Computed example of a mutant assay.
Amino acid sequence: MRATELVVDGVTLTAGARRLVQDVSLTARPGEVIGLVGPNGSGKSSLLRAVYRVLRPAAGRVRVDGADAWSLPVRRLARTVAAVVQEPGAGVDLTVREVVAMGRTPHKRLLDGDTAEDTALIEEALTAVDATDLADRSFDRLSGGERQRVLIARALAQQPSLLVLDEPTNHLDIRHQLDVLGTLRQLPATALVALHDLNLAASHCDRLYVLRDGRVTASGPPAEVLTPRLLAEVYGVTAEVAVHPGTGAPQVTFLPGRPRPGAPSGRARPAADAPREEECHTLL
């Protein structure tokens, strides 16, 4: 598995007369974990669909290692990009191991059986999401969180150079949320991930893009993006933002009530609350 570069260049997406995304550009450099955040309906899922080639741009381009994603042969794209979507889906009469094995399909010819390498990668993917005990169970009979972990395992077994994940922590308990995002950080691949939990995004993403009404409102490292003012303007909430003493990442605390026009929208903790630079290196 290797990392690839993703460039979204001035992409506009429409559905009939409705504009879903307007002139959005972003870059994910090889090996980065890039977070998409924003309120419901801001365009996150639509933008991801353009990247994994379900929703064709009305304008702009999606480039994977410099090549137009929409011009690549389907098989080549499937070897490069793996997607995990929000809806785990039921009605699949397969075992968990068979579902995860589907991730190996882009690397095989029609009617090819599993090789020893395939089997090893499938087991490795199951282990990565703590699903080895589910391997022989019916996918259709799993809980929502269990299905989500299995679909992430299928994407890992695909060995893509670019992972596109739409709310991958949905339905997961806290332990598995941390495990899944921790796995993304360790992979030799690039990841573009939509998240609602801003604290998870802050602690696991290299950079964030904030979407609002289909446009990029802000982008940059989490510490620069997640400010009380931005949270008030984009989410309509009052919040404090501090530096977590253990990770050095921003930590958002939401406060009761909505921000009043012209009133302070929250506050950033004083710099004295943050660990010194040398402490951050040690804690990380």
Rank of each mutant, 00 (worst) to 15 (best):
A3C: 04
A3Y: 00
L13K: 03
R18F: 04
S25T: 07
R29H: 14
E32Y: 13
V33G: 02
L36V: 01
G38W: 00
N40I: 13
S42V: 04
K44D: 00
S45L: 02
L47I: 05
L48C: 07
R49N: 09
R56V: 12
R56M: 10
R61L: 04
V64E: 03
A69Q: 00
W70P: 02
V74C: 03
L77S: 15
V85S: 10
E98Q: 10
G103D: 13
R104K: 04
R104N: 11
T105R: 06
P106D: 01
P106A: 11
L111E: 09
D114Y: 11
D114W: 13
A116Y: 12
E117D: 08
D118G: 05
E124W: 09
A131M: 07
D133V: 13
D133R: 14
R137F: 13
S138R: 06
F139L: 05
L142P: 02
S143P: 05
G144C: 12
G145D: 06
R147T: 00
I152S: 01
R154K: 09
L156Y: 08
Q159W: 07
S161H: 03
L162T: 02
L163E: 14
L163W: 02
T169M: 13
L178F: 07
D179P: 04
T183V: 15
L200N: 11
A202L: 05
A202G: 09
C205V: 05
L211G: 12
R215T: 15
T217I: 12
G220P: 01
P222W: 04
E224L: 02
P228G: 08
L230C: 05
E233G: 06
V237Y: 07
E240Y: 14
V243I: 05
V243H: 00
L255E: 10
R267H: 14
R267I: 09
R267W: 14
A268Q: 11
R269K: 10
A274S: 14
E279K: 12
C280D: 06
T282R: 15
L284V: 15
